[in-house]
Design a protein around this nucleic acid. Structure first.
Length: 574
RNA sequence: GGCCCAGUAGCCUAGUCUGGAUAAGGCGACAGCCUUCUAAGCUGUAGAUCGGGGGUUCGAAUCCCUCCUGGGCCGCCA
């Protein structure tokens, strides 16, 4: 459709009324059936001191003298609006012959970092949203001709890990994930929660004891930072259990990284960098001896970068990681997929990186998404009030097995395959169909629903088309000629929808909003299903059958491409 | 106290950046459609003072101001 818009603009530019006007932005898409493009003419009425309705009338007459316009569009004037409807035969010609050309002038290299979990617990619902967004954005950027590298930062150092390790030392009895029959990350998480529960218990009964236990955890962390060999080994073992567990979950959710980073391996580099810039006079010391940066003139306050005792904090290592990623990938843009609760942190980080003359603020992108809440409120890992990523997939998969069993009698292998894909489509679509920056409350019932605006609805529509194509038995003719077949209104509507695809993908990449594609696919599928219920595709008439099959096939291809960009696999049969 | 984000039918959302013509879908409710290409589908009905108020404009869900409600941040946590 972009092609026709450009044609329209090119011709309008020749008209004196539109001289020096931003025609591209004047053109809008009418909601109703007035046409494909429309221009409200109020802006001219002031300039010309004339009734806009009159202007519309005059302009219409004048524009109709333009042969190029007349060849491509039906021009009409309604009230103060000028409407352009693309001629049917032009749409069909475009659909049958050419591809939408997307222009690739903004080809760039991206590094996208996600989901960067802590290694003290399994991945949960928040991570699921994070992974879905990260996967989808990566694919969308790649589709728009960019190079994308995916990386992950494992936050495997810090007090949370120390708590889990200490709890294990006290109550673990040398058990292992294997001996307890637990997935590694669940095993680690169990001891972390156990620790927090003990603290809570002691706080009620004997606050001194709680304080002492907490102090023990900090003592353990100090031992770790001082490189006590036994402690190092213990942390490493614990982390490897958690990481193994995470790896299994990544595989289920199709998360693949080009490179893994570990906080434990870069935090010291961070200290060095901070000290170096302190010596250069860019960072300063506060009265307590902390190394800080004063960002008050940017309204970001003062920020501690390194504690007075020399231990590092989150931002210390984030500076180092930024440098390291750039060394490894030399990218144009760096994306961080992190929840919106960290917006302040990233503003500070990006400002610092700019001050260090490293990267401009606009080359670092915090892809900030809204929080995921449970109906009872915020998820709290330490209280075990979470929905885990594995558990979610398991639940939805069971639900889809139920649905499959209602309908078909499948072999076990096929049942597993289909239910897995259906479940993933449900979860991913559920996460991606809404605007990333919106908070949302997780609704179990909704996540288990396969009807309406859902992933399975799209898979179903796709499979339905594939089934028709299979029934026909002949190969789809992709190069059909435009002969005397009259495409009906519904078919023209579908064709226009297909031609919108590239524009939608481009916009969704520019705005980092996969939900634009999700919504588009729903509309496309809805339009097709309406059409399907009204018209028969496998018609007797050969010419009609060929055209309809070809159209259905094109829709299935568009669905597949779109779903791929949401990282959802299709099923040939459902 | 300061800063950021959100508020659209009973519920979940699209549209807000870039103001335009009767505010678009889904869930749920109700009434229909399977001897005919997959009913995880389709058709129809009911359901919205777009949080309140003010302003700018020929025109506001959209821009500006203000108030209310909810969430988040302002840690030597991540």
């Amino acid at each position: 459709m972009e092609y026709f818009k450009k044609t329209l603009i090119k011709e309008l530019e020749k008209n004196s009324y539109f001289k020096n006007k931003d025609i591209y932005n004047l053109i809008e898409k009418p909601k109703n059936d007035y046409g494909d493009f429309s221009i409200p003419l109020f802006f001219l009425s002031k300039e010309l001191k004339k009734n806009p309705v009159e202007i519309a009338k005059e302009l219409k007459e004048e524009l109709e003298k333009n042969d190029n316009l007349k060849e491509n569009f039906i021009i009409s004037n309604i009230n103060a609006f000028l409407n352009f409807k693309i001629k049917k035969e032009k749409i069909i010609k475009r659909f049958l012959e050419k591809k939408e050309n997307i222009n690739n002038e903004d080809k760039k290299t991206f590094v996208i970092e996600y989901p960067s979990p802590n290694t003290n617990k399994p991945l949960h619902l928040g991570h699921v949203r994070n992974m879905c967004l990260g996967n989808s954005i990566s694919k969308i950027l790649e589709y728009n001709n960019n190079k994308v590298f995916k990386v992950n930062l494992n936050n495997d150092r810090g007090i949370a890990i120390a708590k889990a390790v200490l709890s294990y030392l006290k109550y673990g009895n040398n058990s292992t994930p294997e001996s307890e029959g637990l997935k590694g990350d669940y095993f680690v998480g169990k001891y972390y929660v156990l620790f927090e529960n003990k603290i809570k218990e002691y706080e009620k009964k004997d606050p001194e004891k709680a304080k002492k236990l907490l102090e023990e955890a900090y003592e353990l962390l100090r031992k770790y930072e001082n490189k006590d060999e036994e402690t190092l080994k213990l942390f490493e073992k614990f982390n490897s259990w958690a990481l193994e567990g995470h790896k299994i979950t990544y595989k289920k959710y199709n998360v693949k990284h080009d490179k893994e980073y570990y906080e434990s391996k870069i935090y010291e580099e961070g200290k060095k960098i901070v000290l170096e810039y302190y010596k250069k006079g860019i960072f300063e010391k506060d009265e307590k001896g902390n190394i800080i940066i004063n960002l008050e003139k940017y309204n970001l306050g003062k920020k501690v970068l390194l504690r007075q005792d020399g231990t590092s904090i989150y931002i210390t290592q984030d500076i180092a990681l930024a440098f390291k990623k750039h060394q490894d990938f030399n990218a144009d843009k760096y994306i961080f997929v992190v929840a919106n609760e960290q917006e302040y942190h990233f503003k500070v980080l990006f400002k610092i990186l700019e001050i260090l003359n490293f990267k401009k603020v606009e080359d670092n992108i915090h892809l900030s998404y809204g929080m995921v809440f449970l109906p009872e409120g915020r998820m709290k890992s330490r209280e075990g009030k979470v929905v885990e990523a594995d558990e979610l997939l398991q639940n939805v998969k069971e639900e889809s097995i139920k649905e499959l069993k209602k309908r078909y009698n499948l072999e076990e292998k096929e049942l597993q395959n289909r239910s897995e894909k259906i479940a993933l489509s449900a979860i991913k679509f559920f996460m991606l169909k809404i605007n990333p920056k919106l908070d949302f409350v997780y609704n179990q019932k909704e996540s288990l629903s396969f009807e309406g605006e859902t992933g399975p609805y799209l898979l179903y529509t796709y499979a339905r088309i594939k089934s028709i194509i299979r029934k026909n038995k002949e190969k789809i003719n992709e190069n059909i000629k435009n002969n005397d077949y009259e495409y009906n209104d519904e078919e023209i509507k579908l064709i226009k929808k297909i031609l919108e695809f590239e524009t939608i993908v481009k916009e969704s990449g520019k705005k980092y909003k996969p939900n634009l594609i999700a919504n588009y696919l729903i509309m496309l599928a809805q339009n097709f299903n309406e059409y399907y219920n009204k018209y028969k595709i496998l018609e007797e008439n050969k010419n009609i059958k060929e055209k309809r099959l070809h159209l259905a096939y094109k829709i299935s291809e568009t669905l597949k491409k779109g779903l791929y960009l949401l990282d959802i696999e299709t099923l040939e049969e459902m």
